[in-house]
Amino acid sequence: MTDEARSGDGARPDGAAGGVKGPDELRQQIERTRSQLGDTVEELAGKMDVKGRAQARAADLRDKAGAMAVQLRSTVAQAGHAVQGRAAQTGHAVQDKAAQTGHAVQDKAARAEGAGLRHPGSVLFAGAAAGAVGGVVALEVLRRRYTGRR
Rank of each mutant, 00 (worst) to 15 (best):
E4F: 06
A5L: 13
R6Y: 05
P13N: 05
D14Q: 12
G15F: 01
A16F: 11
A17N: 09
G19D: 00
K21E: 15
D24N: 13
D24Y: 06
L26G: 01
R27P: 00
Q28R: 14
Q28E: 14
Q29L: 11
I30K: 10
E31Y: 06
R34P: 03
S35I: 13
S35L: 14
L37R: 14
G38S: 12
L44V: 04
A45P: 06
G46P: 00
M48G: 10
V50H: 09
R53H: 02
R53Y: 01
Q55L: 13
A58W: 08
K64Q: 08
A65N: 11
A67K: 11
R73V: 06
R73Y: 08
S74F: 06
G80M: 09
V83F: 12
V83T: 12
G85T: 11
A88S: 13
G91P: 02
G91A: 01
H92M: 08
A93G: 02
Q95T: 06
D96P: 00
D96T: 13
K97I: 04
T101V: 08
H103Y: 09
H103A: 07
A104V: 04
A104C: 03
D107C: 02
A109W: 03
A110P: 01
E113G: 13
P120W: 02
V123Q: 04
G127M: 09
G127V: 13
